[in-house]
Amino acid sequence: MAGIFKKIAEKLFKNFFKKRKDMKLGLYGPPNGGKTTLANRICEDWLNEKDAMGTVSSIAHETREVQIKNSVVIESKNGKKLTFNLVDTPGIATKIDYEDFIKEGMDEKDAKVRAKEATKGVIDSIKWLDDMDAVVVVLDATKDPYSQVNITIVGNLEARKTPVLVVANKIDLKKADIKKIQAAFPQYKVIGISAMKGQNIEEFYETLFEVAR
């Protein structure tokens, strides 16, 4: 019985201090979903910094290290402010083959280095799951959402009771299908955006206030 009270006290203590520091907002998802593009968009919109979170590429695993931008403040239409540390994570995958990078035009040596760094990036992304206060899961709306990586990410966030907003990115592309993503994750709010073109980005910011309170 004493153990239960101890656990409750620890949780209250932890939550008390959690509210006093800036919350960590993580961007998670499979590779090439547009996490860094969205992170750059947020930094450009609210900090006036261009490409602040890193470069983007059509070759998977461009982001291989966790990137953090501290103290991002966004404002809602009714004047509310939300401050967070933005954490852009490497895409989570179950396989990484250096030969795929060679097919994209890299030489063997660079491809092997990229593959090695990418595996470390995935490990870091998984480790950081414990530290997140809220997460935006960024999915490519032109791709099949029923991949186990997506389900595992969401399942882990659910188990940690981390608030989640699902973003269906790349809605500017013809093949984009937001309804399919909504059907795959009916328990979460799904917002369709184009991080690259800024399409529907206002609705994304407004929804962020609802999710990351």
Binding site: T94, K95, Q148, G155, N156, A159
Partner: peptide, 26 residues
């Protein structure tokens, strides 16, 4: 779900030229 994440993490540790990872589905 924590074990699935651990399986992915461990898989990444094991990746080399011959073992390129796993495909996973439930």
């Amino acid at each position: 779900s924590e074990e699935e994440a651990e399986l992915i993490r461990r898989t990444m540790e094991e990746i080399n030229d011959k073992f390129t990872g796993i495909e996973l589905s439930v």
